[in-house]
Amino acid sequence: MRRQTRRQIIVFAVIGVVNTATYYVPYLLLLTRFPYLVAHILATLLSMTGSFFLNAKFTYRTRPTWRKFLIFPLTNAANFLVTTVGVYALVDLLHVGSRFAPLLASLAAIPVTFVVSRWIMLPTAGTTPTRAESA
């Protein structure tokens, strides 16, 4: 694995922790007024925006553009699908508390989210090395 890719994975993981807090705090606040799935959806939309800008600047060191911003939800589509199914399964099928289910469900989505976000933010990452990667 190239040094640049390793750095991206580490930074992505750190931002993931920040993003989890950005999701979880609003989720808990929204949970006091809305059903858990509504709280989950609204908190996801909020954290998705923060995730885009943090990953553009720190993980991939790329300029955020409207095009990337508009397709960035594909990154979170996989995350959203995995976490939503996970939250539902944990709460309704396994009877895990709705306050903790999103944290558990998000663990399964991390690898998928990294691959999709890298593909969006660095469209040529899988084809040819960038100058930084070949140095």
Rank of each mutant, 00 (worst) to 15 (best):
T128N: 15
L107E: 12
A77I: 08
L74P: 05
N76L: 13
R118C: 04
T22M: 05
L93S: 15
T65H: 02
G97Q: 15
L74S: 13
V18G: 01
F34G: 02
I41C: 07
G86Q: 11
A108L: 10
D92E: 15
P129L: 09
A135M: 12
K68H: 06
P26I: 00
T49G: 08
P26S: 06
N79Y: 14
T5F: 04
L37R: 03
F100H: 15
S51M: 04
T59S: 06
G126Q: 08
A89I: 07
T128D: 15
N79H: 14
Y36F: 08
T130C: 03
P129W: 03
R99A: 13
Y88R: 07
F53H: 07
F12W: 00
L42I: 06
I71Q: 11
P123F: 10
P123V: 04
F53E: 02
V91G: 04
K68L: 05
Q8V: 00
A21E: 05
F80T: 08
L42D: 04
L90H: 10
Y60S: 01
P111K: 02
W66G: 13
A43T: 01
L46K: 02
I41Q: 12
R63H: 07
A21T: 03
P73D: 11
T83G: 06
V115K: 09
A21S: 05
Y88N: 10
V116P: 03
R118I: 02
A109Q: 05
S98V: 15
T84R: 09
N79E: 12
R7K: 05
T5S: 10
T22S: 09
R118W: 04
T130K: 06
T49W: 06
Q4N: 11
R7H: 07
Q4K: 15
I10H: 05
A105R: 01
T44H: 09
R67W: 04
N79M: 10
T130A: 11
F114V: 00
V14P: 03
V87H: 06
T124I: 10
Y60L: 04
V116E: 05
A135F: 12
L74F: 11
S134H: 13
F52V: 00
Y60W: 06
F52L: 02
S106T: 09
F34Y: 09
V17G: 05
V17N: 00
K57C: 02
